[in-house]
């Protein structure tokens, strides 16, 4: 019995030792797996953006104002701004979302619904956090499967499928744990960019109240539920941090931006 036990332990040790030893080698880089995944993400990003780009707003003043906010957030958080492609769409829906390959899409409805640039900055930080934490591809793989995504990028794409999955992307609800992770990261981004996170925390409660008043098109709220709880944990997290608030764009620029988009 003792012999069997010793031999069994030795065999298990050889197996796990070999596995552990081999896992020390960086196979992922050796086989260029990350680059292949990146290529798939780039193709998906292009395909999905094609489904949305007809509604893009190209008014320079609008783009410049939002770009200033995104650029400052990126700069203060050492995020490569050139890797994020910002798009503003003419859509009354209160929503912002990220597409594969770092496309950040902001709908005009969200900019109009935001009472301050801090509220909008909070939502932008939240979406940038999803991009930086690679949540979009993780969620897409979970929803559709890696095999489907590969076939979509290698010729097996039908316009109907792209249209339906593009719609899904704009209303994509992440898992609760991923949302909390993005919230916390967003708060860190805001603090480093010297923007108060409090308006962002209150934005959730505000949208929750608006939903009860018959206001339509609150996609960002419906895909980001548990608003009261989220407001609370964001405010609790903020208590431990030193908060500063320096507006990125001038108040009159913000007012003009909302006026242009409302018309």
């Amino acid at each position: 019995m003792k012999k069997v036990f010793i031999e069994g332990i030795a065999l298990a040790a050889i197996f796990f030792g070999a596995w552990f030893g081999l896992s020390r080698i960086d196979w992922v880089s050796m086989f260029n797996i990350e680059q292949s995944t990146k290529n798939i993400e780039e193709k998906l990003g292009e395909m999905y953006w094609d489904a949305y780009k007809k509604d893009e707003i190209t008014t320079p003043s609008v783009n410049k104002a939002i770009d200033s906010i995104v650029t400052k957030i990126c700069k203060k958080n050492r995020i490569d701004r050139d890797l994020i492609t910002l798009h503003i769409l003419d859509d009354e829906d209160v929503n912002a979302f990220a597409l594969p390959n770092n496309h950040l899409v902001v709908l005009s409805g969200l900019i109009i619904a935001a009472d301050s640039q801090e509220e909008l900055s909070g939502v932008l930080c939240h979406e940038i956090a999803h991009i930086e934490l690679h949540h979009i591809m993780k969620k897409l793989i979970k929803e559709m499967g890696f095999a489907t995504l590969v076939s979509m990028t290698t010729g097996g794409k039908s316009p109907e499928m792209i249209a339906s999955t593009a719609k899904m992307l704009s209303s994509l609800a992440f898992d609760r744990s991923l949302e909390k992770e993005a919230d916390m990261k967003a708060v860190d981004y805001l603090i480093k960019a010297k923007i108060s996170p409090e308006p962002f925390a209150k934005f959730f409660s505000k949208l929750a109240e608006k939903q009860g008043t018959g206001v339509k098109y609150l996609s960002w709220f419906t895909t980001h539920p548990y608003s009261k709880e989220r407001s609370e944990y964001i405010l609790e997290y903020c208590k431990k941090k030193a908060i500063q608030n320096e507006p990125i764009i001038a108040p009159e620029t913000w007012a003009k931006l909302q006026e242009v988009l409302s018309n």
Binding site: W19, L22, S23, R24, W27, V28, K139, I141, G145
Partner: peptide, 14 residues
């Protein structure tokens, strides 16, 4: 192939 698990060094070593 079908879920969120990513290809890792541990998987290839296994």
């Amino acid at each position: 192939i079908f879920s969120t698990t990513l290809i890792s060094n541990g998987f290839i070593a296994y």
